[in-house]
Nucleic acid binder design. Structure first.
Lengths: 209, 209, 209, 209
DNA sequence: GACTAACCGAGACGGTACGTCCCGTCTTAAG
DNA sequence: CTTAAGACGGGACGTACCGTCTCGGTTAGTC
């Protein structure tokens, strides 16, 4: 099992180059802010997460937050990513169907356990804040796309998918329905969906003959 | 070509039963509000759309807005739906691939012509306002799902899709990637995507032999 | 012509005893701070003078300022006093009317050349900061009162003022109107005022017979 | 005994013309704000008076304060003026010395009973806020100068002061020392000062013979 | 034709959160 | 031991909108 882990926090919040002079950044404050953000998120929902509330709960000055994160969404993203340690484990099984199935089941399970409201909130935020949308892509979306790409590319190498497969499209075909259900909430994101998606992208004409 | 058109405005905002007595609702004010909402949306983006700004631009009192719509998003949705006349035309061609292709191309074209920022904003709003999410489903999402279901079900009847096809899942498989691209904005929602989606759901093992 | 010059800087800010060990105080920093304070004062007014701005302009750390002065007003007072060299020259002419006239004309002239906004700001500051009020008295006010007292007392000795003259009250009667006009800004502090004040305190009943 | 009372509150806070349309201004809120301002002033001093504290104490939104007063000082001035009902009574006695003495004693007594810190704070504020300085003049200073002018002019008419008396200067000669002592706080503003000032402006050469 | 219910505009209200400024203190590394 | 740098907790600022609440003034039916 390998791991992808390259969403450097620097992408989120590099508002100033690290000087060697001056008082160093307080790691205690940083952690208190991230903890407060997640705590509020879980307790009262995305609506209740405000910079003011985070500052109060973390016993921190508001400017300390603004010094390091450009927006509320950036804090939440950072908190979410940091807590989840955000490894996106890529399973090694032997067949595309097995690996993809496991990969998606794991991912969907995570969403079931409290993460769904958070990622929904982040995606919503990304719609109104272009700066955050970029950070969201860099830190969250692209890492997951990369992991899924690894799985699919191994499938191509093993000839389980046609050689000319458009991997990027397949990724959209898999993550698209997941996000759609996540956001519209008309149907669950569960193991059944995982299997249907596996079928959708593997049981196809090219592998017929 | 048939049409679906059932987004009754009543779903959005029936805050009070229509009395027969008293001054009737001003249609002029209603239209000015909807126009102002769209105008702001197009000119300054979703961020700039506030009840306050709509009222000012429409030269209308804020309570007049609150009297008829429960939230900013409801106004925008109403404005969008009203302007676009919101027919979801279902093509009649003869083959699933042709009908589905045309259906999706038409839909994606609409998104390209200014509608994309609006629907992105609406979807974002739906994430934080449960009441609006329901309205968004009732008025916007379900109408489109219904139209697409019609196309797919005709495909099943024509034996172009297997009899036990999970139509609802197929709808997710088609609208999912569209929304995903719309929201993440990493790739265009265009004719190419339409064709890839047609292929994805039609060129499958079951129809092979 | 004698001189009064006793505004020991010690009154303003003796926050720590001078150690003989260690790096000595940077005279360059001290001067840069005082210069920056006056520069800001003249360029942008008292409002713009903040510790933060002084530190930035002087390219000095904020703690360096706080180490040597207790407040913003103390810096400004020090800067003002230092620049103006703050001699309060006491003229020697022969008659009270001549000496007092010259003394006041000189004083008022100084106020006209940029000093007015500074002393107004200092007096304002003294109203909200008791510590600074004491320093302001010690360094600025009392020196001027002392000089004026000298002039008046010589007038008493020369019998130009009655023997039982309340010199302290006369000082108030002279500096009072000056400050009043300075602060309220309804009338100029100029030579005319100087002459009227000379008349006011000299052409009086006691010297009549 | 006559009265001067022309400090129309309009000078302080006429930020918008009174429209006949719209919800009328809440007198309850207005009074609560003024009461809170004075209460804070008396309890904790000028330093403690902040818009935030006033709003909290008055149970009023901050914007409601900013809607009607341009600054903290304006609120305090309005509160002070309103409470004191701000009549400046002009005594009618028969002789300048009697009338002036009574006038000043009354004025100084008021300052002794809690008003001193307030007017000191207001004068300080006037030094850094030009808009407020104008209001302070219009509402407070000029009314008092007017009352004193009345007393002095009657003295001129009665030939107790020379015909060509510069009344404006005499006003400065009287109020100047008062303010000077008020601000510098080196000597009391009391009945003794009142009598000395009466002597200063009346027992003069011209009335000698 | 007067009444009256419900609408309309305007705009003030209490309130929340915003993002910023500056305070005075602290913690570094460098000199 | 001071310095420049700069982060820290904190408090207040003035603003933008929120959603609600009066107002005075229409605008239709209904009586």
């Amino acid at each position: 099992m390998s791991t992808r882990d390259e969403y450097s926090a620097a992408v989120l919040a590099p508002p100033r180059a690290r000087r060697t002079r001056g008082r160093p950044r307080s790691q205690h404050a940083r952690q208190a802010i991230l903890d407060a953000a997640l705590d509020l998120l879980e307790r009262d929902g995305y609506r209740a997460v405000t910079i003011e509330a985070i500052a109060a709960q973390a016993r921190v000055g508001k400017p300390t937050i603004y010094r390091w994160w450009p927006s509320k969404a950036a804090v939440v993203l950072d908190a979410f990513v940091t807590r989840a340690r955000m490894q996106v484990p890529v399973p090694q099984r032997g067949s595309l169907r097995e690996e993809l199935g496991e990969f998606l089941e794991t991912a969907f399970q995570t969403l079931g356990s409290g993460a769904a409201p958070i990622v929904r909130g982040l995606m919503a935020e990304a719609q109104t804040d272009p700066v955050f949308r970029q950070a969201f892509w860099d830190i969250f979306i692209s890492a997951r796309r990369g992991a899924l790409a690894e799985v699919l590319e191994r499938g191509v190498q093993r000839r389980e998918l046609p050689e000319n497969t458009d991997v990027d499209f397949l990724i959209d075909a898999i993550y698209g329905p997941m996000w759609y259900r996540l956001l519209v909430q008309h149907a669950p994101v569960d193991a059944t969906l995982a299997h249907q998606l596996v079928d959708l992208v593997t049981v196809r004409a090219p592998v017929c003959p």
